[in-house]
Design a protein around this nucleic acid. Structure first.
Lengths: 195, 195
DNA sequence: GCGGCTCCGTAACGGGCGTTACGGTAACAT
DNA sequence: ATGTTACCGTAACGCCCGTTACGGAGCCGC
């Protein structure tokens, strides 16, 4: 290889550019040219790194998943108890600061892009099922005497709540503040008997 | 007026076409031509009824709001008690059949389209705040002795949950079934003390 | 130090987009 | 019957898109 290029670093930079455009310009303006501009390069580099636009989106989606996965793993490993892990892991899924709000917006953009795109849809489902499996495991560890059904219902309630709160907050952060989200999560954990 | 055209009926038919395209083709393929094809007419009619594409989207968004509003009002009026009204109104927000799944997908599409579109974003916020106000009122009527804060937190939890569950179910209806959504909502209402 | 290979910027192409202009047609007034 | 007017289909324009082709430039083995 000549003029040694760090391929994976460039791919990560382009994926970051995809996220930036998605968060600030929206899905409609997510074009190759806009991504290239956000990454500070030309369309030549983008098309050199990826065979086409969909491959770029797919890679950005996968990298987003990997990033959140690493964050969640670290948070879970740090927690002292299963219940602390459950709370901390759910809390990171909320949209409680500007970065998290942007991430939630990006997440929603990918979901909207997955309509009519079987590949992105399959990616979403696989990642989301892994997420649900993780929360199920943490709920069961937090309440070992619960039935499978009860744990499953609580899990569904919690991931729906986090998902919905992040969506609501990313579209209207003034109404759904950081504090409100945190209070809401804690109230839900307490109401479900997981504190 | 000659060749009397029912303007509002045509506008509704075009809005329905916007929803169909948004639900089945996705935001990326939501073009004037696709809408015209779905409505069984040409772009000429579309551009005759609306000055431009954004006005068409805005009208479709407003009509979607009006339709859900009418449905919610009817459901609430039929309910015997505030708690029954709360449950029924929240339940209609879930994605429990094909039509509701499509509606949730459309809703998400509009939200994604609102990124970077101040007009659509303002419309979303206004509608969502009205929705939150309604749930707040029903929660307060269901539990009159609660503090304002407790009611607000429960309201936030409930609308987040419904929002999130509808999103999850519309993207993965096999994992998040109709029955699971209903059980989850009832469990949450019971856990919060609203049954 | 030089030939060749890889990297990536430039520029163009075909297609699909939103939008506009225009003309045919159908209903009403007379 | 015929002129008038509103309705809307047709076709075109200019723009921006994804994608491709090409060429200059830097790095490596020799």
């Amino acid at each position: 290889m000549s003029r040694t290029a760090d391929v994976s670093a460039q791919e990560a930079r382009l994926s970051q550019a995809v996220w930036d455009v998605l968060a600030h310009e929206g899905l409609q303006r997510l074009t190759i040219r806009a991504v290239a501009a956000a990454a500070g390069c030309t369309t030549g580099l983008v098309m050199h790194r990826f065979p086409n636009r969909r491959a770029l989106l797919r890679h950005a989606r996968e990298l987003l998943h990997q990033r959140t996965l690493a964050r969640v793993e670290a948070i879970e490993a740090e927690a002292a108890t299963p219940r602390a892990a459950l709370r901390a892991v759910l809390h990171q899924g909320l949209a409680t600061d500007d970065e998290a709000i942007a991430e939630s917006t990006v997440w929603m953009g990918f979901l909207a892009a997955a309509v009519g795109d079987e590949e992105l849809l399959a990616l979403h489902r696989a990642n989301n099922r892994a997420w649900r499996k993780r929360i199920t495991r943490l709920v069961r560890a937090s309440a070992p005497d619960w039935s499978v059904g009860r744990a499953a219902t609580a899990t569904f309630a919690l991931i729906s709540m986090v998902e919905g709160a992040a969506t609501l907050a990313s579209a209207d952060p003034d109404t759904y503040s950081t504090a409100a989200q945190t209070v809401m999560l804690d109230a839900a954990l307490e109401a479900l008997g997981l504190v």
